[in-house]
Amino acid sequence: MTTTTTFSIPYGKQNITQDDINAVVETLQADFLTQGPKIDEFETKFADYVGSKYAVAVSNGTAALHLCALALNVNEKSKVITTPITFAASANCIKYCGGEVIFADIDPKTALIDLEKLEELLKSNPKGTFDGIIPVDFMGLPVDLEKVKKLAEEYGLWIIEDACHAPGGYFIDSKNKKQNCGNGNYADLAIFSFHPVKHIASGEGGMVTTNDKNLYDKLIKLRTHGITKNPDLLQENHGGWYYEMQELGYNYRIPDILAALGVSQLSRAEEMMQKRQEIAKRYDEAFKDTKIQFFQYPKDSIFHAYHLYVIQIEDRKGLYDYLRENNIFAQVHYIPVHTMPYYQTLGHKKGDFPSAENYYKSCLSLPMYPTLTEEEQNFVIEKILEFVGK
C-alpha cells in the first residue's frame, strides 16, 4: 500500500541545534568576528579529532586544496594525478597553479581511484614525470593511503588527501593500526570541507591538516596574503606594528563566527556519525535482495564515514525522476571531471576512463543526513522498492 505523506526529503541537510546558535551568538557578542581565538580553538580541536599535529582553518574546501597546491610548489611544469570521480575542485586546484591534471580511472567495486591502474600509469612513464597525487575519500570511503604512500615514495610523489567526505573515517594499516582520514601519517597534506551537507557544517569553511611543520608555516602565511607578523620570520622588525608580505598569498581566512559553529558541530561529530551508520545499515538491509548494486570494501579494515550513500541501478534516470515526483530529492555524484567541457578543451575526452563513465551512468546518492527520521527513510525505501518492482 502506498503511503501518502507531505515529506520533502533532500539528499543532504545540515543539523543546526540551539547549542550551535548559542555558540555563534556568543561569538557575535565577543571582541573578534575574524582572526580571533575561535580560529585557534577550531584548529586545535579538529587536529585532535583526526589525529594530526597541525590544522589550518580556511574559507572553504576549494581554498584548502589551492593552498595545498601552492605550499607544494605546483607550477606550470607540474603533472598531478587524481580521480575523475570527484568534485571538480580536486582537479581545479592544480589548474589554478598552472599545472597539468592527469586522471587515473576508478575501481568499479569501490568508485575510488584504482591503485592498480595508478601503478600502471606510473610504471609506463619515466620516474620524475609526475609530481604528486590527490586521492579522494569519495562518499566517505577511505583510500588505502598506505599503499598510495608506497607508490609515492617509489616514484617521488607528494600526496594531498582529499578527505572532504570522510572526517571520522579510517582504515586499518598493515601494522593493524587505525589510520584516521586526514591524520597525516601517509599524506603530506589533507583537506576537509564544512559545507552544509558535510559531516561538520559551518556554512562555508575548510581545513588543511598536516604533520609537517614547514608546510604548516607556509599555509599560515599563504592564507593571509603571504603576510607574517611572526618575529622569528621577519627580515626586519620596525616595532609591534610591523609585518611583511614575503610571498604572494590569498585572503582565504575563515571568520570566528563560522569557526564557532564548527567547534560546536565538532562536539557532536561522533553522535552524528553514529546516525549515519544507522541510516546506511537500514538501506543495506532494505536493498540486499534487489537488483540494486552496492560498492564492495573490506568492512573489517575500513570504516566508511558515509557522507554519501550511493547505489547503482540500471535505470538511474527513471528512479531519479520517480523519487522527485514523490518529493525525494536524490542526487548524482559525480559527473566525471574529464568529460566536462573545460577539461575536454585540454585534450580529455569521453571514453578515456570507462570505469568512471560506467559508474556515472548508474550512480544515485540517496538521502543521508543525521536528522533523517526513520519514518522518512522508510518512505524513501518504499518508493525505491516500488520503482524496482515495476
Score class of each variant (00 low, 15 high):
Asp31Val: 09
Leu33Lys: 10
Thr34Leu: 12
Thr34Tyr: 14
Thr34Ile: 12
Gln35Val: 14
Gly36Met: 04
Gly36Tyr: 00
Pro37Asp: 07
Lys38Arg: 11
Lys38Cys: 01
Ile39Asp: 01
Ile39Asn: 02
Ile39Glu: 08
Ile39Ser: 12
Phe42Gln: 07
Thr44Ala: 02
Thr44Glu: 02
Thr44Gln: 05
Phe46Val: 05
Phe46Ile: 03
Phe46Thr: 04
Ala47Thr: 00
Asp48Thr: 13
Asp48Glu: 07
Tyr49Pro: 04
Val50Asp: 00
Gly51His: 00
Gly51Val: 00
Gly51Arg: 02
Ser52Met: 01
Ser52His: 03
Lys53Ser: 04
Lys53Pro: 00
Tyr54Ala: 10
Tyr54Asn: 06
Tyr54Ile: 14
Tyr54His: 13
Val58Tyr: 01
Ser59Gln: 05
Ser59Val: 05
Asn60Ile: 00
Asn60Phe: 09
Asn60His: 05
Gly61Glu: 11
Ala64Pro: 00
Ala64Tyr: 01
Leu65Gln: 11
His66Glu: 12
His66Met: 04
Leu67Thr: 13
Cys68Tyr: 02
Ala69Asn: 03
Leu70His: 01
Ala71Met: 14
Asn73Arg: 07
Asn73Cys: 03
Asn73Ser: 12
Asn73Val: 00
Val74Leu: 01
Asn75Tyr: 11
Asn75His: 14
Asn75Val: 14
Glu76Met: 13
Glu76Thr: 09
Glu76Asp: 11
Glu76Tyr: 09
Lys77Arg: 05
Lys77Gln: 12
Lys77Trp: 11
Ser78Met: 12
Lys79Arg: 13
Val80Ser: 07
Ile81Tyr: 03
Ile81Leu: 12
Thr82Val: 07
Thr86Val: 07
Phe87Thr: 04
Phe87Tyr: 02
Phe87Arg: 06
Ala88Cys: 06
Ala91Gly: 07
Asn92Gln: 15
Asn92Pro: 12
Cys93Gly: 09
Ile94Lys: 15
Ile94Thr: 13
Ile94Leu: 07
Ile94Trp: 09
Lys95Glu: 11
Tyr96Asp: 12
Tyr96Trp: 15
Cys97Gly: 03
Cys97Leu: 14
Gly99Arg: 13
Val101Asp: 04
Val101Tyr: 09
Val101Pro: 00
Ile102Asp: 01
Ile102Trp: 04
Phe103His: 10
Phe103Asn: 13
Ala104Gln: 05
Ala104Ile: 14
Ala104Lys: 10
Ile106Asp: 08
Pro108Asp: 01
Lys109Gly: 05
Thr110Asn: 10
Thr110Ser: 04
Leu112Val: 04
Ile113Gln: 13
Ile113Glu: 12
Ile113Ala: 13
Ile113His: 08
Asp114Glu: 04
Asp114Trp: 02
Leu115Lys: 08
Glu116His: 08
Lys117Gln: 15
Leu118Gln: 03
Glu119Gly: 14
Glu119Val: 15
Glu120Met: 09
Glu120Lys: 15
Glu120Asp: 15
Glu120Cys: 10
Leu121Asp: 15
Leu122Val: 14
Leu122Ile: 12
Ser124Asn: 14
Ser124Val: 08
Asn125Cys: 13
Asn125Arg: 09
Asn125Val: 10
Pro126Thr: 03
Pro126Tyr: 11
Lys127Glu: 03
Lys127Ser: 06
Thr129Gly: 07
Thr129Ala: 02
